[in-house]
Design a protein around this nucleic acid. Structure first.
Lengths: 197, 197
DNA sequence: ACCTGAACACCGTTCAAGT
DNA sequence: ACCTGAACACCGTTCAAGT
């Protein structure tokens, strides 16, 4: 008899909760199963495997990204807002920086976000592959910044400073650098705009 | 009787070879041990655990990075060269992008590299925290670019294009974007130089 | 149709015991 | 001092068997 205890949507939500609270390594099929009141093997009836769960969880999170309209606020404000929102999302779900490297396949939400971001740079005046490259440059920088500040690091940090010098950047440093670097990048991009109005 | 079959240096080199050929998930203590002619448990006598091996392997790779002198070639050429070299290194050792997120502790080779990179931006005219931020901006962008092109992705890509549209960037795209983005960033940074000579 | 239990082939790590 | 073997507590995944 079908008990319908599990559904794809429940599995994905439970996976996200587990990843957020336990980190990238905290997600295991058995733990996910027990969190849903069943066994790890039960999950396999609804889902292909762990990889698909990560795929679904990743795209579910992308769905929450706001997509500001460049009309009215200007392309630069829109670009800055989207970069900050993306960074905030990556901080909220640190496991994303490990699941991001996949060039493909992206889910529909990720694709939708990227399309919108591209339209922002097209609104700025970039065309064709230049718009794509501008988009990718900013996206890449934000992703790299999040990677830098990920508490979810593959290696745990031990003794931080042996000589009293704060060699390693703090979360503060990284965050301040987002504003600085983004400003510099947008300046550089702006100076390459083909025609000014 | 000590057979001295193992040494720290041998372990690290074997680990790098294993990571390069099998990917980030290819390194296991047992495989490492058997590659060295012993058992996995034997490694634990020479090394604290897997984490330390990753730490040592990471810093060993950083030692191979060339450190060009900005004198003569100019800061911008030096900065570009270092960025390209870093990207090339990350492509050679894709597992590095998973071991990089650690803000600390860095090994001596990584620290030495960062010091040199900082000096390049100081030679350009940046001072204090601005030099640090410029350094971190470029470093972050290169790291993000490598993350984008990592074949070592956490999730394997399956069906690439369902509708015939090449949504996902190819390795070519990512590589071309390194030059574009780096140029834009350096332009943006250059325009922020406090005093021009 | 949906789930359980046990199994397979792996992990990192520990630790008594050997030499 | 250096290594082995077996063990512990985990993994992802499969699959017969239950209901």
């Amino acid at each position: 008899m079908p008990r319908n205890a599990l559904s794809r949507e429940q599995i994905v939500q439970a996976a996200i909760a587990l990843l957020d609270s336990e980190g990238a390594d905290g997600l295991s099929m058995r733990r996910l199963g027990s969190r849903l009141g069943t066994t790890g093997a039960a999950v396999y009836w609804h889902v292909e495997g762990k990889e698909e769960i990560l795929l679904l969880a990743t795209d579910a999170v992308w769905r929450d990204m706001p997509l500001p309209d460049p009309e009215g606020i200007g392309w630069r404000t829109a670009a800055t807002t989207m970069a900050n929102d993306l960074y905030a999302m990556l901080l909220r779900h640190p496991w994303l920086v490990r699941t991001m490297p996949l060039r493909s396949p992206w889910g529909p939400a990720r694709t939708h976000h990227d399309d919108h971001l591209l339209s922002v740079y097209e609104a700025a005046g970039f065309t064709g592959s230049e718009a794509e490259q501008a988009t990718r440059t900013v996206l890449t920088f934000v992703l790299g910044t999040a990677l830098d500040s990920a508490p979810d690091a593959a290696l745990t940090r031990r003794a931080v400073c042996k000589d009293g010098e704060p060699l390693a950047p703090t979360g503060q440093d990284v965050h301040r650098n987002l504003a600085f670097g983004l400003g510099a990048i947008l300046d550089g991009l702006q100076s390459r705009l083909p025609t000014r109005s």
